[in-house]
Nucleic acid binder design. Structure first.
Length: 893
DNA sequence: GGCACGACGTA
DNA sequence: CGTACGTCGTGCCA
């Protein structure tokens, strides 16, 4: 038994915290009706965090009321230097009080009294009543209230970071205990309150005096004993100091309508909360608030149960009868094995029905009848299955000769669509989060049916439990997916695509191993040569792959000018080295850069050689749940970053060749897909016309921006608008553009202005994307794929601006990902329908690589052009360029 | 063996 | 002070 925890009273200075929020968040945060909401949003967000982190039992928010206070009566200039409250702020205070009313939190004010005096009074009463008190205020005068049981939370930056001011923290920061802080403040003065201090006396001197004399009264009594210029200044300003002290003392005996006991949290008024949160378009903040509703927090946490399952023991007939008895049921399937596209295996599988009954089948020791029944079920497109990561299971089963069909739901893909920014989608973690259950098999004692016939390693129980968990999880995720408008995207795109990807991975792409080996040798020779010449240039050997050692060489030994600062010193990246070379022409730099290039190429070749499978082909794995924008990624090896920009790099592409039994490789890529999507989404007339005209895009844009004839657009103009156009989709700044083009920031900024003058629809679109996302909490692609960006309302500028750039980019990059996924499904389906032998091998974001069977080239090209071109109906045409050849390099264009 | 970091390849 | 990824080596930790 634990003793009852002390009650915790949270007191907030409403005005000062709302004011902080107002300046921390952009005043472009408005509802669709134009109401500015940054202060109310920031304040509510801060309050939400406090409820979550501090778990107060009692709460009140105090507001200033009335212009006249005892302080202005005593000293008319009090707070006299403050500029008038911004109009946009003033209107938000009543909104904050509305929110508080919905949360059933008292807003306390009293005519002629400042919020801090209310807080001081309540804090004193609460402490006397045995409560712990937290005071959240941006007014430093509140520091005088700090005691063993009273802590001030003082905003450091914005309203998201609060400093915990305990007695020790106050003493550490100011050099005096909390009760002496107003003495110190009286000496130093407070600009924001228009209280001048003693000239030449800062916090350090003030603290020294206070500690020396004991307190301010004693100091003033003995002011004549203070020597020097500062002593004179003190004597001259003694009256002001006394006045300061009088004014900065907080009232502790204000008569209030509430006593601390009346401030107990009662739980939110959900109806009122929904109304106000919707009216203010709080978006995701509403859910965050609900998650901290004290009415819910108070409920006893239920001991978390495990996912339960009953393992049915199979008879001599194997799994057939069990599966047949459940025909038409959605069954959870978990395969135990090794998921590898070229070297997979499966050793057992578990199937669970919706009631929690399961079977486990040992695949390594299966009699023919059982095998036949299992194969029939697995390959039956009409036998609905639910998996967590069907593609991996596909590889495992494929290795044992099974075909997997009838996947109607994939909990991993569903979780990805619902929470695309998550790092991983581990089954156990999802079960914990979404089912509030644990993924451990129930104790053997509790489950009599478990420990029968099957082997007793516990493996089977775990498998069966996972299968049951997948079944249960699917039920929750069906709802979550629907809530996010992702049902169609999951069912019609991601799930069928995982099957297409599985087959692409299984096929792999043929590699010319002798050629790769030759390349490895050549690059290796060059590595050695460049390294030796680099060593000769500086007269010693260093590890050229160690930025740390390079920094020593460049900045110590060679005393070169410092480059851009990074965590570990100064950067040695390629751009910086090129810059240094331009300045110093030191041969070491040239050899170092050449070494970097060639060692990288050698590494790439080595990696590829290592990943050639027994069939002479390279089998990548396409990750379908990694990129938050909806793109695929490629691993083991990554075939989406094979060099193409340099001639040396392109040599590597010659190693990817057409395989035995096929005639050619075909590559097809979308040209300027992202810009076309931008034209479509923005509806900018100029940009749409640019694509419809068939003119070279950058030439067209250049002619508009620079006001010249398209024929007169110089290469320099073209490259500037090209960088500009692409940068837009990333949230490029004038500074970034100037860096990339090596021009002045002013020129870059002028370029951007000219661009937006000509293509105003683009600017409107980009601004609109961010504002909409801020209000709704997410961005969406053409197919409705969402990306949630809670940081759009962060008061941390860096995080917020990062989120804004993500919001600009996600609909564009993500829509492009949508389109090529749809195109892949179309190409695959059409190839199958026409009975062609050609096949998809790779996807590189805007490019598809296919292996073309003899005689099929023209038809395959037509299919690919048709399917890629028809992936979406945009206001601009989707242009596809196609190339063929014996190698990836030859097929490129 | 695992981690963070710098560097750099692709779209 | 430009989005989205994956991989490699170094240097440092346990």
């Amino acid at each position: 038994m634990s003793t009852a925890a002390r009650p915790r009273l949270l007191l907030i200075d409403g005005h000062s915290m709302a004011f902080r929020a107002f300046f921390a968040l952009p005043d472009t945060m408005v509802t669709s009706t134009g109401e500015v909401t940054n202060a109310v949003y920031g304040f509510t967000s801060m309050l939400t965090n406090l409820l979550r982190d501090e778990q107060p039992t009692h709460l009140a928010v105090a507001f200033d009321a009335g212009r006249q206070t005892f302080r202005t009566e005593r000293y008319p200039e009090y707070k006299g230097t403050r500029s008038p409250t911004p109009e946009a702020f003033r209107g938000q205070v009543p909104l904050i009080r509305e929110v508080l009313a919905a949360l059933q939190v008292p807003s306390i004010d009293r005519e002629g009294i400042e919020a801090d005096d209310i807080l001081a009074t309540l804090a004193g009463q609460a402490e006397a009543a045995g409560m712990d008190v937290l005071i959240c205020s941006g007014d430093r005068d509140s520091l005088q209230l700090v005691t063993e049981h009273v802590t001030v939370l003082y905003p450091i930056r914005g309203v998201s970071e609060l400093a915990r001011m305990t007695p020790d923290a106050v003493a550490a920061k100011y050099g005096v205990p909390p009760e002496r802080y107003p003495d110190l403040a009286a000496l130093v003065g407070e600009t924001s309150d228009n209280l001048p201090g003693v000239p030449g006396v800062g916090p350090g001197v003030a603290a020294k005096w206070i500690n020396q004399y004991g307190d301010l009264d004693a100091l003033l009594e003995q002011q004549d004993s203070v020597t020097g210029k500062r002593g004179e200044a003190l004597r001259e300003h003694a009256a002001q100091v006394r006045l300061n002290r009088e004014l900065n003392a907080l009232l502790r005996d204000v008569e209030l309508a509430y006593a601390p006991d009346d401030l107990a949290l009662r739980g939110f008024d959900r109806d009122a909360l929904f109304r106000v949160a919707d009216a203010l378009q709080f978006g995701p903040l509403r859910e965050r608030l609900i998650a901290v509703d004290p009415a819910v927090q108070d409920e006893e946490p239920v001991a978390r149960a495990s996912v339960s399952v009953t393992v049915d023991v199979l008879g001599a007939d194997g799994p057939g009868p069990w599966l047949v008895a459940r025909r038409g049921d959605r069954l959870g399937l978990v395969v135990e094995g090794r998921a590898h596209p070229a070297d997979g295996d499966a050793w057992s599988l578990a199937v669970a029905d919706p009631s929690g009954a399961a079977i486990v089948v040992d695949l390594t020791d299966l009699d023919p009848r059982a095998d036949e029944a299992l194969a029939a079920w697995l390959g039956d497109a009409d036998a609905p299955k639910v998996l967590h990561g069907a593609k991996a299971a596909w590889h495992e089963l494929s290795a044992r000769g099974y075909t997997l069909r009838g996947v109607v739901f994939d909990t991993e893909l569903a979780a990805y669509l619902c929470y695309p920014d998550q790092r991983g989608y581990d089954l156990g973690e999802l079960v914990e989060r979404l089912l509030q259950r644990d993924l451990v098999p129930a104790d053997d004692a509790a489950q009599g049916t478990l420990d029968l016939a099957l082997d007793d390693t516990g493996e089977n129980d775990r498998s069966a439990t996972r299968a049951a968990a997948v079944t249960e999880l699917a039920e929750v995720l069906v709802g979550e997916t629907g809530d996010r408008g992702a049902t169609g995207l999951l069912r019609d795109v991601e799930i069928p695509l995982s099957d297409v990807l599985a087959r692409m991975e299984r096929r792999g792409i043929a590699a010319d191993v002798p050629y790769l080996t030759e390349l490895e040798g050549q690059f290796g020779d060059q590595v050695a040569r460049e390294a030796q010449e680099a060593y000769d240039a500086i007269g010693r050997e260093v590890n050229l792959g160690s930025p740390k050692q390079l920094q020593e060489v460049l900045f110590d030994q060679l005393a070169m000018p410092k480059t851009k600062k990074i965590k570990t010193g100064y950067t040695t990246d390629a751009a910086a080295l090129a810059d240094l070379f331009a300045k110093t022409e030191h041969p070491f730099l040239a050899h170092l850069l050449a070494h970097r290039d060639v060692i990288r190429l050698r590494q790439t070749v080595e990696g590829l050689l290592k990943s050639v499978a027994a069939d002479g082909r390279i089998h990548t794995t396409f990750q379908q749940t990694i990129a938050a924008t909806g793109r695929l990624s490629s691993t083991d090896p990554n075939l989406q970053n094979i060099p193409i920009r340099t001639e040396e790099g392109r040599r590597i592409r010659r190693a990817f060749v057409v395989g035995e039994g096929y005639e050619q490789l075909l590559t097809a890529d979308y040209s300027q897909i992202e810009m076309r999507i931008m034209a479509h989404l923005s509806g900018d007339a100029g940009l749409v016309e640019a694509f419809r005209s068939g003119e070279d895009l950058h030439r067209y844009v250049g002619s508009r921006v620079f006001e010249v004839d398209p024929a007169d657009v110089t290469p320099a103009m073209r490259s500037k608008v090209k960088a500009m156009s692409y940068g837009l989709a990333y949230g490029l700044s004038a500074f970034g553009l100037s860096q990339q083009l090596g021009i002045e920031v002013s020129e870059a900024s002028g370029l951007m202005q000219d661009y937006f003058t000509r293509f105003g629809g683009v600017r409107e679109y980009l601004a609109g994307v961010v504002e909409e996302a801020r209000a709704s909490g997410y961005t969406a692609t053409i197919l409705g794929r969402r990306r949630y960006l809670p940081d759009l309302t962060s008061d941390n500028r860096q995080r917020r601006e990062m989120a804004e750039r993500m919001a600009l980019n996600a609909p564009i990059q993500g829509s492009a990902a949508d389109l090529i996924k749809v195109a892949m499904l179309g190409v695959d389906r059409e190839i199958e329908r026409r009975g062609l032998a050609s096949r998809l091998l790779l996807q590189v974001h805007d490019e598809l690589v296919l292996e073309v069977a003899a005689g099929e080239r023209d038809e395959v090209e037509a299919v690919v052009r048709e399917q890629m071109g028809a992936a979406a109906d945009l206001t601009v045409p989707l242009d596809v360029s196609v190339g063929v050849g014996r190698s990836w390099h030859e097929a490129g264009h």
